[in-house]
Computed example of a mutant assay.
Amino acid sequence: MARWEPNAPERLSKAALELFAERGYENTTVIDIAQRAGLTKSTFFRHFQDKREVLFGGGTLAGLLTGAIAAAPASATAFEAVVHAMDAVGREAFTPDRREFGALRRAVIAANPELREREALKGLALTSAMTEALRERGVPEVTACVAAELGALAMKIAHERWGAATCGDFGEAARLAFDEVQAAIAAETSSGPVAAKSSAR
């Protein structure tokens, strides 16, 4: 029977990020990560499929978002359901003790084109998951797509601010970012070509 290793995923994740930052993602092996964490290679593979999964994980974040959208009050609008989901992510995933990990993770990804591409794909997958969760609530497809896209943008802005320690609670930062995105769209719509065409009619 395999020996239980306390906090193995956290230790491996921390070791991986430290090594990625020190040596570069390409120059770090699974064995390096396991040794830095004081664990074995087999322990690493019990928790992660490969070193890339340390950065991107499984479907935890998508599950939190879709679950929270489904659990939002029945009276909630599409936008309110998305904000409800961002609050849940703040409580469960982007907690204060994860701030340093988030900042290191972002720096590692920014330094590697392959990882930036994977991060973009993950963002698209999260947006798609939110869209589908909204559609399952009965939200019309176009409205669901818009709400999910705005939510994804707000989460990106909030995550950058949260990781840089320019804000406190992630959920609060996400709600503020969501309001800012909506305000920017409203301002552009009221003064842009669409508004001008409407007033000319």
Rank of each mutant, 00 (worst) to 15 (best):
M130R: 06
G102C: 06
G151H: 07
C145K: 06
I33P: 00
L65S: 06
R201Y: 06
A147Q: 07
A2T: 06
S13T: 13
T166R: 13
E53K: 12
A74L: 11
D87V: 06
A103Q: 13
V142D: 11
G102P: 00
A125Q: 11
T143L: 12
K156S: 13
K156N: 05
R36N: 00
R161K: 11
E141S: 15
E132R: 15
V82R: 05
F94V: 12
R201S: 08
L176G: 02
M86D: 05
P113V: 07
T166N: 00
F94R: 10
D179A: 14
V146Y: 09
A165G: 08
R106C: 02
A16Q: 07
A186W: 03
I109H: 06
A16R: 08
V54N: 04
L55Y: 01
L55R: 06
E5M: 11
L104Q: 14
G163A: 14
G63L: 05
E18A: 10
S198K: 13
E149W: 03
R3S: 09
L19K: 06
N112G: 01
C167A: 15
E141I: 10
A187F: 01
F170Y: 14
S198Y: 01
T189L: 15
V142R: 14
T189Q: 10
S198L: 14
E26V: 08
F94Q: 09
T143I: 10
A184L: 14
F101Y: 14
K51R: 15
S42Q: 11
L65R: 08
R118G: 02
Q49Y: 02
M1L: 11
A125W: 01
I109G: 03
A76K: 05
P9W: 01
L39P: 04
A164L: 12
A164M: 08
R36G: 03
Q49V: 13
R137K: 11
A81I: 03
C145L: 12
E5R: 11
S128R: 15
L121Y: 08
R46C: 01
A76V: 06
E92Y: 04
S128T: 13
Y25S: 03
A129N: 09
